[in-house]
Amino acid sequence: MTVIGFLSTAPVVEGSMAGEVAKAVDALEEFDVTYETGPMGTTIEAESTEELFAAARAAHEAIDADRVSTVLKIDDKRESDRPAREKVDAVVEELGRPAKHRE
């Protein structure tokens, strides 16, 4: 089974959050997950909800701030092992062209 999650975690601070968010992303390296970081959050793929929750918790706890905001959205399609990339590919197929993205 492939569980896909979208994780957004950040300190509640004024100014740049990049340093603390980098700590959260780095924490994911300790887990058997794949991930892709974007401007609003990180897509994580894991073999189980337990692994996904553990990785998300570690990312949340890696941030050193008095207040941390974390949102985790989970797609647990139990009858399928399709990776997140296939979801994107399906949209591209419907579009009939690559989706635009910033380089």
Rank of each mutant, 00 (worst) to 15 (best):
A55H: 03
R67W: 07
T42R: 11
T34L: 10
P11F: 10
E14Q: 15
T49N: 15
M1H: 13
A99W: 00
V33Q: 00
A84T: 05
T70R: 01
G38V: 12
S69W: 08
A84R: 03
V21H: 04
V91L: 13
A62F: 02
T70V: 01
V71G: 06
M1F: 03
R78D: 13
E30D: 15
G38Y: 14
S69C: 05
A46S: 10
G15K: 06
T34Y: 10
E61K: 05
L72H: 12
E50A: 14
D32M: 06
M17S: 15
I4S: 05
V68W: 01
S80F: 07
I44Y: 08
R85T: 07
E20A: 10
A24M: 03
L7F: 08
V3Y: 08
E50W: 03
A10W: 04
T9N: 02
E93V: 04
V13W: 00
A18D: 05
M17W: 06
V68I: 12
A90H: 02
T49A: 13
K73N: 13
A62S: 03
E79I: 06
A58I: 03
F53G: 05
A54L: 05
S69M: 13
D66G: 14
A46Q: 01
A55N: 08
V68C: 07
V91H: 00
R102P: 01
V33A: 06
V92M: 00
S69T: 08
G41E: 04
A18P: 03
K23D: 12
F31S: 06
S16A: 15
A10V: 09
M17E: 08
E103R: 11
T43R: 10
V12L: 14
V92S: 08
G15S: 10
K73C: 13
L28E: 02
A99T: 03
I74L: 05
T37C: 04
S80Y: 07
L95S: 08
D89F: 04
V91K: 02
V92C: 01
S8I: 07
T70P: 00
S80H: 07
A24V: 01
G15P: 00
P39C: 09
A22C: 07
V12E: 07
A56Q: 11
A59P: 06
A55D: 07
A59T: 04
L7K: 11
R67Q: 09
I44E: 02
A84V: 12
K23Q: 09
L95E: 11
D64T: 11
H60K: 10
T34A: 02
A22E: 09
A58P: 01
E14F: 10
V88M: 12
T2Q: 08
E45I: 03
T37N: 09
S48P: 01
P39K: 08
A59F: 02
L7G: 08
M1T: 03
V92A: 12
R102Y: 14
E29P: 01
S69V: 10
V12F: 08
P11A: 15
